[in-house]
Design a protein around this nucleic acid. Sequence first.
DNA 1: TAGTGGTCTAGACCACGAA
DNA 2: TCGTGGTCTAGACCACTAA
Lengths: 234, 234
Amino acid sequence: MTDGRALKHVQVREYVRSLVTGSAPGSPAPSERELVHRFGVARMTVRQAMDALVVEGLLERIPGRGTFVARPRRTASRITSFTEEMGRRGLLAESSTLLARREQAGPGVARALSLTEGDAVIHWRRLRRADGVPMCLEDAYLNEVLLPGFLQSGMPTSLYEALDQRGLRPTWAEDSITADVPSPDEAALLECDPGKPVLRHSRRAIAGEKVIEVSRTVYRADRFTLWVQLGHES
Amino acid sequence: MTDGRALKHVQVREYVRSLVTGSAPGSPAPSERELVHRFGVARMTVRQAMDALVVEGLLERIPGRGTFVARPRRTASRITSFTEEMGRRGLLAESSTLLARREQAGPGVARALSLTEGDAVIHWRRLRRADGVPMCLEDAYLNEVLLPGFLQSGMPTSLYEALDQRGLRPTWAEDSITADVPSPDEAALLECDPGKPVLRHSRRAIAGEKVIEVSRTVYRADRFTLWVQLGHES
DNA sequence: TAGTGGTCTAGACCACGAA
DNA sequence: TCGTGGTCTAGACCACTAA
C-alpha cells in the first residue's frame, strides 16, 4: 500500500512483491482468498495482480497447493561487458580515451548505423586496461543526431549508462565474433606480438527501431575470453 | 473452434490466433465485445484469451483504439548453429563423424557436465565442412545416463533434433569464445596453417536443471564468423 | 457520440492436493 | 473434508480515441 491513489491490482501486486522479495524460493505467497479479505477486493482483482508477478517470473502457481516464490529464472541473455568481465576476475577495469570527435561516416559505419555516407557520427576510441595491462582497443561509433551535445558534455565513464540517461538504452544487440591477427597499429597499442591471435568483436546495439551504437573491439586473445549466456526459443 | 471439449478461453484464443497469423502487423484483431457475442462468453473470458496472445507477443493492445497484430518481436537470443550459418551463405553443410563412443569423463568434462570423474559420457567428434571445405572440428560430450541407447540408435543428423525427441531440448546455454592457434592435430584435420588464428567456442547446454551437452569447437577463423543476437534485460 | 480497452465486482463450480 | 488455484459469469464505470 505504497500509494492510496494507485490502482487496486497494483496495490495488491506491490504488497505481494514486497512480501516476497527476499523470500526463499518455494516459500508460500499469500493465498488469493486471503488477499481478497485483506484488501477487500474481488478475486479477479487479486488474480490480475498475481498474474503479473507470475509472468514476471517472481511467483509460481501450483494448482491445488498454492502460490509460491519461484526459483529465480536465469538472467536474460547477454554478453558480458568489459567492465563486468574484469570485475568477475577481480581486476580493475580502466579506460583511456584515445579519440573522441565528430566525423563523417564512412561506408561501413554508415551502413551499420543505417545512415548515409558522410552523415555526422561520433567516433570514440578507447584503450581498455585491466590492472594496467592493455586488454582491448574499442572503436565506438554513435549516431550524432540521436545524441546532441554528447561530445561537449564530457565523455562518460560508462557508455551504456550515458545512453540510459538519454532514454536510449539498447534492448537488442547483434554481435559478430571472429579471430584474426592484429594490425601493426593494434599490436603496438595492445603491446602484443603481431603474429599472435586476437578476438574481433563487432556490435550493433539497437534501441527500439534505432541503431544507437556500432562498435568494433579487438581483444588480446591470450588475456581475454568472451562469455555469452543464451536463452533459447520456446 | 478446433475442439468442442476445449476450455472456452482456449477456444477463443485459438480462434483469434488463426485469424491473426499471417495478417500484417498493425491489422486489427476482433474487438473484445465482438468475440463476446460470437462465442457467447463473458468478457473476462475473452480477456483471458487475448491476454495470453499479448504476453506471447502476437497481439498488442492500444487503449481507446483496439487490439492489433503486433509487429513480430525479434527472435530470441541465440548463437547461430553451424548448419544455419552455412545455409545463410548458401553453402551445403556436411558433417563426418570421426568418433562416437562411450568414454569415462575426464576432470574437465566431468566438471562441465556436473558429473564425477570416470562417469560414462558419450564423446562425439565431428569434422564439419561447407561445400567440401573443412570449417570446424567439434567435440561434443553428452551425459550418457540421460541418453540411454543413444550410440546404438545410430548418430542423428542434428544433435539438437535428437535431444528434442527425447524431451531434452536445451533451454539455456553458456558459451565462451576465444581466439587461439590450432594444435598440430587440429591444423591437420582443418587443413590449415598451424600459425593461423582459430576461434574456440565452448558451450554448456542446459535443459531444466540438467547439463545435457558440453561441446568444444574449433573454427578456422579465415572462413568462419560467429553471430550472436542478444536481447538485453528490461 | 460511439466504440475501445482498463479496471472491478460478487458471486459460482470445478479439479486437485493434503490431511 | 477443506483449502487451493483454474475457470467463468453478467454485469458495471472509467479514460481514451476517432468520427
